[in-house]
């Protein structure tokens, strides 16, 4: 595996895109048909390195279809997609791309632990076997999402928010430079949303490029630099975060500021009942994990 994210700028706040010319994502005139219906009708999207782009739009506007096309899950009927300058296919440096699909509620037939699911994120391209030291990579990734003590739990024993965080850890375990997330906080409990925002803040500060599908900016509002809004399969807005329609101001929580570092997480007093996963010292987490 190549060393990743080390050459990215780690400017705090708004990291400037490194101008080596090659954007992380470059989609040109992408059309996608699912069955008979055209879901995407000529979408252009460029995400430069170090950018945090939110993909917004109503249900059925094609957000999920777009990100699934960008990572090669769905074939585009027309147009081109380049990741890190390579057309989709075997040439793409898949190790540098992390994808977090929408959580599927259906539990697979055989139980699998959180660690096993995360470990599967270490495989990419032609790497079909787990690399040396995969256990510590998995532990780090789970730690990053605050689930180090849940490594040996079966995924179906975890709450929905925790399952979502396992999927995020699976995308992070190979240390990607580009993270593509599909509705990472949909239907997720507030503590998991906060843990997610804290994780993202840290990753973005380290230079991570992010494309995230959201319903509302919510906890991520301070991180998002650019918003792309889809409507009926076309881009209708590409620029600064748009103002929410009246009655949709869902992100106006009183504590929207992302937490600079997880250890300094401040929760509103009214919801604080027990210590969250971030506040436990690492060594006790390890003990619990064993």
């Amino acid at each position: 595996m190549t060393s990743l994210a080390t050459d990215s700028p780690s400017g705090a706040g708004t990291p400037p895109p490194p101008d080596d010319g090659v954007p992380a994502i470059e989609a040109r005139d992408v059309h996608v048909r699912l069955g008979a219906s055209p879901v995407l009708r000529g979408v252009d999207l460029t995400v430069r390195r170090g950018e945090v782009v939110a993909l917004l739009g109503a249900n059925g506007s094609g957000k999920s279809t777009l990100v699934r096309t960008l990572v090669g899950v769905l074939p585009a009927t027309a147009g081109s997609v380049h990741l890190f300058g390579h057309a989709l296919g075997n040439d793409v440096p898949w190790a540098r791309v992390g994808y977090v699909p929408q959580r599927v509620s259906a539990v697979a037939g055989v139980p699998s632990t959180a660690a096993e699911v995360v470990a599967s994120g270490l495989l990419h391209g032609r790497r079909l076997r787990l690399p040396r030291g995969w256990r510590s990579s998995v532990r780090e990734a789970l730690d990053l999402v605050g689930l180090a003590d849940r490594a040996r739990y079966a995924t179906h024993q975890l709450s929905g928010g925790q399952q979502q965080r396992v999927l995020i850890a699976r995308a992070l375990v190979r240390r990607p430079e580009l993270l593509v997330l599909d509705e990472p906080v949909a239907g997720v409990d507030r503590p998991s949303q906060e843990a997610f925002a804290a994780t993202m803040t840290r990753l973005v500060a380290d230079g991570m490029t992010v494309l995230v599908v959201l319903h509302e900016l919510g906890e991520l509002a301070p991180l998002v630099q650019r918003c792309v809004v889809l409507r009926h399969g076309k881009v209708v807005h590409d620029g600064a975060p748009p103002t929410p329609r009246p009655g949709h101001g869902g992100e106006a929580h009183e504590h929207v500021h992302p937490h600079a570092h997880p250890r300094t997480v401040q929760r509103p007093e009214d919801v604080r009942l027990a210590d969250g996963p971030f506040e436990r010292p690492d060594d006790t987490e390890d003990e619990v994990a064993r």
């Binding site: 699934r68 075997n90 793409v92 699909p101 697979a108 096993e116 599967s120 990419h124 391209g125 699976r170």
Partner: peptide, 16 residues
């Protein structure tokens, strides 16, 4: 396991 568990993710990882 990866392919059997979540085929979509396996595709997005460029696995065969």
């Amino acid at each position: 396991f990866s392919v059997s568990h979540d085929e979509e993710f396996a595709v997005s990882a460029g696995l065969p």
